[in-house]
Simulated assay, not measured.
Amino acid sequence: MKLLIVDDSKAMQAIVRRGLTKFEHVTFSIKKASNGKDALAVIDEWHPDIILSDWHMPHMSGLELLAVIRKRELPIKVGLVTTERNEGRIKKAIKLGAEFVLAKPFDDESLHKAIIPLIKVKANNGFVLPKLNRLQQTLNRSLSVEVTLTSGAPQQVSSELLPCIVGLFEDGLTNKIRSIAVLNLQAACILGGIKSELAKGEIDKMLAEKRISKEALEGGKKALSDCAAAFTIPGSKRNLTFKNMILLADDLQKVEALFNKPDEQRLDLSCQSADLQSGSITIIAS
């Protein structure tokens, strides 16, 4: 897999490269560029799969580079590795299509966790997992309040995960379930509450009481249905369709069975909106 490091600091180029050599999931072929303008020349000639770019650089910034890549509709995953801390600017980068924004300084583990979702889409052997930026865009078209999705830690299977929401997505031609979304209570209340236009106080009350109302459940169902447009079947232009949503209140064994999948068949996300609690979403290719 081809990966381009874009940074005006030679020292940072070396740090990122060294971290990538310790990545166990795939071996990268790596090239480097000192700014966005130089990166475009490498892109035209070399066609990388992934770009890890600094934000603030002379001649062309990482954000400007990302904008050009998206305008050209190039099939390149772009992550920003930066000292940028402004929340508004970071949200703008995610909206523009950045897969993640990783703050400097960082350790190898943080870098590896950020990269894992980027390699899943490339090597998922036909599994249907959505691209993070497309899922983000699809979700926010559905909701009246902005929700931010970022790569997150894998959800732990324990009684604390219950109750949770399970959304089923199927191939409309074969009626076969191809992807499953598992939302913990926080994520379910965020999406369902916003879609149902519930007040923040009502959402906070559901979370405090560890329950989800019928109204929020219906809202969650509609939000998941809208998200089906982000699930594209590999090798085709068809999307999955939303089939059903299930509330799992006490069946921990069923949740364990769902989560018993290798890394390349799952996408773990953190879900955040305004001052609500953050939630977790795991999408599993079946």
Rank of each mutant, 00 (worst) to 15 (best):
V101D: 02
G172R: 13
L217T: 13
I5R: 00
L4G: 00
V166S: 00
K37T: 14
G201V: 12
I119D: 09
Q277M: 08
A199G: 11
L185T: 01
L20I: 02
R141L: 15
A93M: 05
E146M: 12
L139N: 02
T83P: 09
E24L: 12
K254W: 13
A208E: 07
K120M: 11
E202L: 13
S273H: 00
D251N: 12
L3T: 04
H56N: 15
V121H: 09
A228D: 10
A93Y: 05
R17N: 09
L139M: 12
R211M: 13
V42I: 10
K131Q: 14
S196Y: 06
K221N: 13
E218P: 07
K122C: 03
G126E: 03
T82E: 00
E197L: 11
S225Y: 10
Q13I: 07
A103F: 10
L96D: 05
L185H: 03
G279L: 08
D108L: 04
M60H: 08
S280N: 15
W46Q: 03
L149C: 07
L118V: 02
K222F: 15
E215F: 14
D108M: 10
A39C: 00
K2F: 03
G88H: 14
I203M: 11
G279F: 02
E170Y: 14
F127V: 15
I281N: 02
E99R: 14
P262K: 06
L185K: 03
I203V: 14
L267N: 08
V157K: 08
K104L: 07
T82K: 08
R85S: 13
A285Q: 06
L267Q: 02
A257I: 15
L65E: 01
R211F: 05
H56D: 14
A199I: 15
